[in-house]
């Protein structure tokens, strides 16, 4: 399969990255090159092989149900590009 401009537009949209029209074709070429190179993976027989879920052999740790965090709205908002009354502010979202 090869990556075309429409695919690039769709992926850019899903990635929420504005891609200028003139970048679509070059990007399609770059991605196509990478996926062509990756195609060698199809040589590998993976029948019956479990996908790796973690390289770490241990149980998921669990914490106790204790409140240890929060009450830090000022620190939380300190880096916010726009905030008001401890709310983050964004352009109006239409539901």
């Amino acid at each position: 399969m090869s990556v075309d401009k429409d695919t690039v537009r769709r992926i850019a949209r899903l990635s929420r990255i504005a891609l200028p029209e003139e970048r679509c074709a070059p990007m399609a070429g770059e991605l196509d090159g990478i996926f062509k190179w990756v195609e060698q993976l199809n040589e590998v027989n993976v029948d019956g092989v479990q996908p790796m879920t973690s390289v770490v052999e241990q149980r998921l740790k669990m914490r106790d149900d204790v409140v240890t965090d929060g009450n830090s709205a000022n620190a939380l908002m300190a880096n916010a590009p726009q905030g008001e009354d401890h709310f983050f502010v964004v352009p109006k979202v239409v539901e």
């Binding site: 914490r63 929060g70 709205a73 401890h86 709310f87 983050f88």
Partner: peptide, 15 residues
């Protein structure tokens, strides 16, 4: 570890 109580001040129960 942030609290879950209902009706708290905005962004006060956020880690």
């Amino acid at each position: 570890g942030a609290a879950t109580a209902f009706g708290a001040e905005p962004n006060s129960q956020v880690s």
